[in-house]
Amino acid sequence: MKKEMVCISCPMGCHLTVEGEGDNWTVTGNSCKNGERYGIQEMTDPRRILPTTVVIKGAMISRLPVKTAQEIPKGKLFDAMDELSKVVVEAPVKVGDVVLKNVCDTGIDVIATKTMPAV
């Protein structure tokens, strides 16, 4: 498999070409070690933090910002959105509170990113 991508490890933005399969990958176009690491991660297990909102009742506004506590597999972003669209929390909420455990069986929790008192 072969893929081209832009490295985001630093502002340089090297255009990488990553080639290989399994545990065997070669990265070209990078200017440093970070680029190699980034390229291989993107091919083997790309992950992203998912920031979004959930419904909150009893607070000043009707949406609570949340995020996955760690990066989740990129392929599960939309499934996670679906699961989160059903979540309703009640104010008060503190930043860091878990609003959904183990989203999409990733073993990763979704946490509040804002403290919202009850009104």
Partner: peptide, 18 residues
Amino acid sequence: IHNGFGLHTFKEQLTGPE
């Protein structure tokens, strides 16, 4: 609400509200 704030100040990726 997206992440990416605070890498320089807090050495971690925070969301705006955080």
